[in-house]
């Protein structure tokens, strides 16, 4: 299996689709079931969309976790405006876009592990992982 991480730069909506596809393929190779593939693709979609909407551009890095537990890791990184109030951003029912997006709590639910580092004015780095059961 190709272990090298897959990097997808996000500039426009097509890139969101490319990132989803890359994540889904990797998830499939790893042996994730149908529902989990769809969950992983949705999580990538949300993260890429956040980059596209708020930071304008950034990067999604998809890699295989090949440790004691096998799984997939998604990193979303940008140098955008950052998130001022992380606690609020992680609260259910809070989305600045006011839209129907799953938001960060949604991404956290779709995946098993979720970590976020954000500095106002400097950017955001989100790491989300899902393990094979």
């Amino acid at each position: 299996m190709n272990i090298a991480p897959n990097r997808v730069e996000i500039h426009n909506e097509w890139d969101i689709v490319r990132a989803r596809q890359s994540g889904r393929e990797r998830a499939k190779e790893l042996g994730f079931g149908h529902v989990d593939q769809a969950r992983i693709a949705t999580a990538i979609s949300e993260l890429a969309r956040n980059i596209y909407l708020y930071a304008k551009h950034g990067e999604i890095i998809i890699s295989v976790i090949d440790g004691e537990k096998r799984g997939i890791s998604i990193i979303a990184e940008d140098n955008g405006p950052g998130i001022r109030d992380l606690r609020k951003a992680m609260e259910d029912g809070y989305t600045t876009s006011g839209g129907l997006g799953a938001g960060l709590p949604g991404v956290k639910r779709l995946m098993d592990d979720f970590d976020i580092v954000s500095e106002e004015g400097q950017g955001t780095k989100i790491t989300a992982k899902k393990y094979l059961r």
Binding site: V35, A38, T42, G106
Partner: peptide, 9 residues
Amino acid sequence: LEAMIGYGL
């Protein structure tokens, strides 16, 4: 299935 993920969330 894909369309239902959002409902699940």
